[in-house]
Design a protein around this nucleic acid. Sequence first.
DNA 1: AGCTGGGGTCTTGTCTACAGAAGACAAAAG
DNA 2: CTTTTGTCTTCTGTAGACAAGACCCCAGCT
Lengths: 242, 242
Amino acid sequence: MSQRIEQPPSLVQLAVNVLLRMMSLGELKPGDRVIENRLTQELGISRPPLREALRVLEQQGMITQIPRKGAIVTNLTLHDVYEIYTLRREVERIAVDLGVPVSDPVRLERVRAALLRLEEAAQAGDHVGVIEGGYEYHAAVIGLSGHRRLEDAYRSLHLQLVLCMAMNRRVREPKEDLLGDAARHRRLLEVIETGDRKAVHEAIITHGDRAFLINIENEIGGHTPESLEWLRLIREEEGLGL
Amino acid sequence: MSQRIEQPPSLVQLAVNVLLRMMSLGELKPGDRVIENRLTQELGISRPPLREALRVLEQQGMITQIPRKGAIVTNLTLHDVYEIYTLRREVERIAVDLGVPVSDPVRLERVRAALLRLEEAAQAGDHVGVIEGGYEYHAAVIGLSGHRRLEDAYRSLHLQLVLCMAMNRRVREPKEDLLGDAARHRRLLEVIETGDRKAVHEAIITHGDRAFLINIENEIGGHTPESLEWLRLIREEEGLGL
DNA sequence: AGCTGGGGTCTTGTCTACAGAAGACAAAAG
DNA sequence: CTTTTGTCTTCTGTAGACAAGACCCCAGCT
């Protein structure tokens, strides 16, 4: 019997999770001030664990602390979005180079399990489940590389992106077809199983969730030469039906 | 006059800096237990700010926390070293792709300034200065990309590497010639100024500080297929006089 | 009317204190 | 002599309280 008893997680960890959830639900929006006393009341914890949680989120880039002035939910600029997208794509690329063809079947099994969860959620019409399953699926793909830091980087970028997408209404009205989404993920898995690295790269490129970028430069500020040039390229590719 | 008033940094920030310094000096070695009360006495601060500092370092991968059991300085395995090295090289590669040829002269100026500091330290025989200057130089090179997250990633990887190198005696007996080191950095800058991306990539590869990997697999554990294969490749390249 | 200075309030930064869990050690039993 | 159990110490997790700093509003002055 390997029935281990469950340890109650620390309040810091719980607070981090709750705050992340609040952000993804839009209860905490970018730019919102984060007042410690208010949150301690809402969460029912005292300030020290909350402050530690805020430090964690600050390191992840979700919270921006200004000394003696307080914390706000990080306001992403267009340049930030550019950074997140470009880095995430590079992370995927590196992971595929390292992880395909797959050496350890256990890692593939993780992708398969995530895909199953994703497909079940899609059939049940469970939007939240599809989003979470989608993350777990992609994380598992990164995990094929056996590179923990790479996966951590992916997670961090993903979380920041969640923050950004929560800003955008288009994403919160999810009328894209869940089943088609799941089918795309299944095809990617099949390509991975062939072990053809180049094919996997191509499959991932056409897999992009860049729809919400369409009008983004009118919604947020912080344009830079790099980010505008990047956006122009994206537009071109999308225009070509990619 | 842009004489801004100096704000006293928070105790958390100070504690992070002191702890990093202790690690690089070997006063805190990988595997060491970190007992909060002891450190609060040494640093002259109370536990809450120290705990927040530990959270920050945990996020950076320098500290490993085990719930209800305390914290230790992260013990790096061979696989970790493999991860750090491979990722750092990828970060450099991405930065060069994005940042060369240089679009913004201000960024190049930063590299030049770092090089000057490095050369001064080299001529003064200031080992610590050379190491710190070397970091600032490389960070500035990453900064050519105008990609803050990329630079953050580089910093994080660098810090973890410091942890690893502090373990290794070879690095603490610095008899390598500082002036030659500075000259190599100057050559890299010259290549960057030509704007020839490919040449920069080659220059960076031959720039490696991989000397301390020579005997590493006998000194630390945590071997994995990936890390051993990687080490084998490194050996081959080094053997070829690279 | 606009600017400057002061008081009040709110918020953060830090410290001390307490409760509960983990580990160490010693004593007793097999 | 080994093993086990009970107690004791140490350390972490959390709470609450206090002090210092930042913001805001209003009165008074130019």
